[in-house]
Each structure stands twice: as structure tokens, then as C-alpha cells.
Amino acid sequence: MKEEIIISGFGGQGVLSMGKILAYSGLLQGQEVSWMPSYGPEQRGGTANVTVILSDERISSPVLNSYDTVVVLNQPSMDKFESKVKPGGTLIFDGTIQHVSARKDINIYRIDASNYATEHNMLKTLNMIILGGLIQVRPIATVENVLQGLKKSLPERHHHLLPMNEEAIKTGMNLIEKVN
């Protein structure tokens, strides 16, 4: 099994930490993992993205030109990456995005995470809602492993927030819907 993923959104939406939690989940599943962030000026206010690869075999390039799964949280990310989904691959987009890919050869899913998070005062766990949606349609990691991964990437003083994040993951799993 090999899953090549890019997650892209505004800086501050938790894109990099979401990738990190996925990478930790892969580690717990005994897989090879790589996590390559955009660390440039985009991290400071523009769009930020992270490439995560989970694989049963040695990972060659940490930098890719096409992906099995693309997760986009804002319009610029949609515009930049919708064409980079491999045929048969998966595109997941946040409900705030207006102009959606018209591609017929990929599976497109909408997750109305930002709106839901705003209404339910869950913006701090927005990325976990998205992550819940992702693992619902791409079962690359179990909820248990994701939670373990979160525990590993979170400093101990924040561990009391784990139940809140678990709830967010479950929310995301229910919220995601196929659009094509």
C-alpha cells in the first residue's frame, strides 16, 4: 500500500499539524512515512501545504507531481492542485470553496467543515474534522491510530484536549459527502 497525499490551505488552518498526525499514524502502523512541508513565505499568511506519504515500502521522492489524494481548504489550493490528482484518485474540498473541479475521472468529496466549525465553535479543531472526513473516504489510518498519532504529536500539557479532537474526527466522518 502506498498513499501519496497533499493537504493545502491557508496558514493557520492546521494543515501542517494535520499532516504530522497522519505521518504519526503511519508510523504506528509500521509504515514508511515522509512529511514535507512548504516552509517558505506561504507559511506566514499565504497558502501552506504539506506532502505526506505513507507506504509499505521505502519512499523514494518526498516531492511529487501528482497525488492519490488531494485535500484543499481554500480556493487558491483548489486551483493549484485539482489537476494534480491522479486519475481515479480522490479530491476533498472544504465547503467554503466556490469553484470546484469539473474533472470526471476522480472522486470528489465535499466536507462543509469550516462552516460547521464556525457554527459549533470548533474552529480550533477544524483540521481534525477534515482529517475525520479524509479517513472516512480513504481508510489509510484507523481512528485509534490517528488518536494515538495526535497524542504523540501533541505536548503532554495539551492531552486534556484529546476527547475534543476525537469528537471532531467523528464529526468529520459524518460530514463528508460525495459530489460526483
Binding site: 515522509s34 512529511w35 519512499i59 518526498p62
Partner: peptide, 10 residues
């Protein structure tokens, strides 16, 4: 280089 410095792996 920046890739090897910034990326996370096992």
C-alpha cells in the same frame, strides 16, 4: 538542503 532539513521521516 532545505528538503532534507525540513522534512520528517522515520
Amino acid at each position: 538542503d532545505g528538503v532534507i532539513g525540513q522534512m520528517m521521516e522515520k
